[in-house]
Nucleic acid binder design. Structure first.
Length: 262
DNA sequence: ATTGTGGCCTGCCCGC
DNA sequence: TGCGGGCAGGCCACAA
């Protein structure tokens, strides 16, 4: 699933339910889902007989370390991917994908021990699995973002503020909904130049990002923001009632309030 | 190097 | 009820 909060919830699910049991079988019916030359056979060779010893995350990339010096299994979920452990997902509701769980969407199944199964389901096949992903291509994890990190992410960039925040090489984990929510809370125009956000504005943005992550995390996901309900055509700003503006910024559908986001 | 665009996939929802 | 169009929480290759 998409943004950092959902991936973190999935990481916890795997940490509690998928570690320390031997991978006994691998079922990868959709070879297209395997990236960077990985094949179903190669994946089985790499995993069968090993155990997952840690579930890590960097941004939206989920990382499973394996025993006996084996490779790292990297999972990314695109917009519609979810992971299940024994039929249970980290969240029952996922926007923009089906509520159903059709087995034909199971792109990867790992049998753990005698009776457990870990399944990656992804209707749109926009996610994928790989071995030993390049973790360094991702910037600082958004959940541990510090003032200096944000300064570096924005400094000198002529890109729109929103595009800079969505750039996973600068800050890893923020997605479209979280960024729209945080910029709405901070009162910042998503289209303004990233480098123009400095000083007090940058402090305000940092506080909004942290507050958004903390609060929406408690509420249960990226879709629980205060802006979310109004994030439709004809929506009005929940703060001041102004008609929301709908634009494409950074290649993504963007809702913002022309009255209080500057 | 940085930024912008199109495309990848498939399911769902809206309006006719 | 059926159908086409538009849309979608991500990311990558490519162009300018």
């Amino acid at each position: 699933m998409p943004e950092i909060l959902e991936v973190e919830a999935s990481r916890l699910l795997l940490e509690r339910g998928a570690l320390h049991r031997t991978v006994t079988a691998v079922d990868a019916p959709d070879a297209w889902y395997l990236k960077r030359g990985l094949t179903p056979g190669g994946l089985a060779d790499a995993l069968v007989g090993r155990r997952f010893v840690a579930a890590r995350r960097r941004g939206k990339l989920l990382l499973l370390d394996t025993s006996r010096g084996g490779p790292v299994l990297g999972l990314h979920f695109g917009m519609t991917g979810r992971v299940f452990v024994d039929g249970r997902a980290a969240q029952d509701r996922l926007l923009y994908t089906s509520r159903r769980a059709d087995p034909v969407w199971d792109r990867l199944t790992l049998h753990l021990g005698r009776a457990s199964r870990m399944v990656v389901s992804d209707p749109r096949r926009l996610g994928g699995a790989e071995l030993d992903p390049d973790e360094e291509r991702l910037g600082v994890d958004a959940l541990s973002l510090r003032a200096g990190d944000l300064a570096r992410a924005l400094h000198g960039s002529r890109a729109p503020l929103k595009a800079a925040l969505l750039d996973q090489a600068r800050i890893a984990g923020l997605g479209n909904l979280l960024v729209d929510e945080a910029l709405w809370r901070a009162g910042l125009d998503p289209a303004r130049r990233a480098a123009s956000v400095d000083g007090d504005l940058r402090r305000r943005l940092l506080a909004a990002l942290r507050g958004t992550l903390r609060e929406l995390g408690r509420r249960g996901g990226s879709h629980t923001g205060d802006l979310m309900e109004a994030r439709v055509r004809g929506g009005r700003c929940p703060r001041d009632g102004a008609a929301l503006e709908r634009r494409t910024i950074g290649g993504r559908t963007t809702f913002s309030c022309p009255a209080h986001q500057r």
